[in-house]
Each structure stands twice: as structure tokens, then as C-alpha cells.
Simulated assay, not measured.
Amino acid sequence: MGAAWTALALSLKVACTATAINLVLGVAVGYLLARRRFPGRDLLDSILTLPMVMPPTVLGYYLLVVLGRKSAFGAWLEDTFGIHLIFTWQGAVIAASIVAFPLVLKPARAAFEAIDGRLEDAARVLGLSEWAVFFRVTLPLAWRGILAGVLLAFARALGEFGATLMVAGSIPGRTQTLSIAVYEAVQAGQDDVANLLVIITSVVCIAVLLTAGRLAPGHTAGH
């Protein structure tokens, strides 16, 4: 059973790190897409949304091509910084971040677009800088939608399987996340371990989804 808790700890580490990355990038890009009009905006939005519809194994293959030692970027990382991402927990973080990113981006953009621009204009008239307007007006008004998206992204990152397996593999104690451990346990006929992991995963995901539902814009008590 110790391997099960190790896999859980690693999954939480990967999911929390990926969620933190997506919180920063998702809010920044969501704000950009909501507030700025520029050539190629719709194309950029479509590309960033691709992980929602593209098979995770395909994303994993793309990551292998980009981050592998034979790629120009992968070779540059290794030669310059000594960084090798394939078959590491950091590689699992990258895979989980990309797969879960649209779940932060879409709610963040929708939350920003739903804000009455007159409130922000009033803050500017009062002399607030753009940074102050964002942190004191825009972000507080959009936080419920953003947090709901972040929770969904955390649940998605926690359960990520395909892309993570392609990029990080299944090394017990190093890259074997919860979902991969379930697969390995089933393959090995360890039903007790598989059942424990499935129960843990289900409880965590249900708790996250319930919380996200309560935070979603428009939710009211009793619904």
C-alpha cells in the first residue's frame, strides 16, 4: 500500500505545480484575449484550446518531439542548462499543465468579458493605474470564475494519464502518478491497490467538482 500513497503524493505534487503554472498563464492569457483585439486572436484561442479536444497521447507525442534529446529545443536545454525533461516529474508537470490549461483559460476569459467595463473606467477616472485597476477592480470581480476553472484544472491534472505516460513514463516513486498507478495495478492483478487508488481519486475529484460548482458564476444556495 505504500506505493499507492507514494503515487498519490507525486500526483498531488504534479497537479499543484501544474495548477499554479496554469493560474498565472491562464489569467494572463485570458485577460489578453478578453481585453485586446489583434490579428490572429481567434487562431491563438483555438490553438490554446486544442488540448480540450486532442487525444492526450497525441499531445504526449508532440511533447516528446519538442522536449526530446533529438529536438533542437531539447538538445539546447540539456547542453545549456543540463535539463532533461523526459522521464522526470517535471516532464509530467509540463504534460499536465498543457492538458489542463484550457480549463483555466476559458473560465478566466469568460469572467473577464462578463465584467462591466464602466467599473474599470470609473477606477481609471479616479486616477488608478492599469495595474491597480486590474488587481483592485478586475481581478476581485472575476475571481469566482477563475477559481472554479482552477479547481477543474487541478482535477484534470490530477487524473492526467495519456500525455503523462508518454512524456514521463511509469517509474515508481519518480514519475508514476495516481492514474498510471491504477493502470499498472490492474495490469499486475493487484485489485486491492487498484480499488484503493480509484476510491482516493474519485473522492478527491468529487470534492473538487462540488467546490467548483459552488464557485461558478450564477450559482445560488439551494440550486
Rank of each mutant, 00 (worst) to 15 (best):
N22G: 04
G149D: 02
A92T: 10
F38D: 06
R41V: 10
A110L: 11
V65P: 08
V150G: 04
R214S: 02
A148F: 08
Q90F: 07
D79E: 15
T80V: 14
L43Y: 02
S97G: 01
V203F: 13
E160L: 06
A100F: 03
T19S: 12
C16N: 07
G145M: 08
L196S: 04
L105Y: 05
G159V: 07
Y61T: 12
R136F: 11
A18Q: 04
R156Q: 06
P172H: 10
V93F: 10
T138C: 08
L77I: 09
L8H: 09
E78P: 02
V133S: 11
A185H: 07
A72R: 14
H84C: 04
Y31L: 12
G82W: 00
P56W: 09
V186G: 04
V198P: 00
K13T: 13
D121N: 12
G169E: 00
G68H: 06
G60Y: 01
K13H: 10
K70W: 10
K106A: 05
L197R: 03
W143I: 13
G40N: 08
L50K: 01
K13F: 13
L12Y: 10
T138D: 06
P102V: 09
G218H: 05
L103K: 00
A18L: 03
V65D: 10
I94Q: 03
T201E: 13
L119M: 15
G82I: 06
V27W: 01
V53Q: 10
R41G: 08
L210Q: 10
I83S: 06
G117D: 13
